[in-house]
């Protein structure tokens, strides 16, 4: 449905491009997880898809049509759900929905139907008449999503939609995203919570420094990563851990847990022998295909970005 082709974008007064030849395909009815460290270019890509920025090179096409022309014909078909609570706390839930629907130029009757559908979708019936400033974080997140649905969009751009909420609300939102996609909607989902992305996204793309590092079905992306080793040992081993750190710089040790994001198969037996020689029992071990977080860390390396 959406084809992003060799997209370049550079902000004024910066020497490095925010996007440097990004190409991606997002199929209709799919959920693409967009991952990347802070400053990788995710927000720029979302801004371009939302029409907040205009491409400098390359292009975005929807159903074969340039994005701008497609949006002119389908003005409310792409909705952005920002990370911030982008609504008015002094208005009620219903007033907020009505306002954002009205601002999109939706006629009164259709507006009423759309708002009712959005309230029902996000289970906000009980608080529809309540001022938003009085709502909990979870309800606000649900309202943030519901506002995105007032235009009956075909594409949802979700920018970290579950930040700062309890597990129940997170579960509800993830389920809502899946329901939206199951009904034929297309979702671009950005998050720093890898387990969320693994739970809802069939496809993922990892970007860094404005380039796509990997993209494709989640299973294939994980398969493409180097094998990882996770150990839980009976007691911490400060001396041995220091030696391992020198040999495997990407290793992390927290308490009794030791993680090796990339670990060659031929090093496994010697490592276990070292533990046995030190008299340390292995309580749990996992070796093999990495999870998404391990792939992410392998591809983006471990250095802090902020």
């Amino acid at each position: 449905m959406i084809r992003i082709d060799s997209l370049h974008y550079r902000y004024r007064a910066t020497s490095q491009p925010a996007l440097d030849g990004v190409s991606l395909d997002i199929g209709r009815g799919g959920i693409l997880g967009l991952l990347g460290p802070n400053g990788a270019g995710k927000t720029t890509l979302i801004s371009l898809l939302a029409g907040l920025l205009a491409p400098q090179e390359g292009g975005i096409a929807v159903d074969g049509e340039p994005l701008e022309a497609w949006r002119a014909a389908h003005p409310t078909a792409i909705a952005l759900v920002p990370q911030d609570y982008a609504f008015y706390p002094m208005l009620t839930v219903a007033e907020n929905l009505d306002f954002f629907a009205g601002a999109q130029g939706i006629p009164r009757r259709q507006r009423r139907d759309n708002c009712a559908a959005a309230i029902a979708f996000a289970c906000l019936e009980a608080v529809a008449g309540q001022r938003v400033g009085e709502l909990s974080g979870g309800l606000r997140r649900r309202l943030n999503l519901a506002i995105g649905l007032t235009g009956a969009p075909e594409v949802l751009l979700l920018d970290e939609p579950t930040v700062g909420i309890d597990p129940q609300s997170r579960h509800f939102l993830l389920n809502a995203v899946e329901r939206f996609a199951a009904a034929g909607g297309t979702v671009l989902y950005t998050s720093h919570y890898m387990e969320e992305v693994e739970a809802v996204c069939a496809d993922v793309a990892i970007i860094d420094h404005g380039k796509v590092l990997t993209a494709g079905p989640l299973v294939e992306v994980k398969r493409g990563g180097a094998p990882a080793l996770n150990l839980e040992i009976a007691r911490p081993l400060p001396d041995l851990a220091a030696d391992w750190q020198a040999r495997f710089p990407e290793m992390t040790a927290v308490g009794n847990t030791v993680d090796f994001p990339e670990f060659p198969a031929d090093a496994l037996a010697p490592l276990l022998a070292e533990l046995a020689a030190a008299g340390v029992a292995v309580e749990r071990m996992r070796y093999g295909a990495p999870n998404l977080e391990e792939v992410f860390m392998q591809l983006t390396h471990h250095a802090l970005r902020d």
């Binding site: 939302a50 029409g51 907040l52 952005l80 911030d84 609570y85 954002f100």
Partner: peptide
């Protein structure tokens, strides 16, 4: 600051 202007811009207002 709350991203409301950004949301309105994304709604082509």
């Amino acid at each position: 600051q709350h991203g409301t202007l950004q949301r309105l811009a994304a709604q082509r207002v």
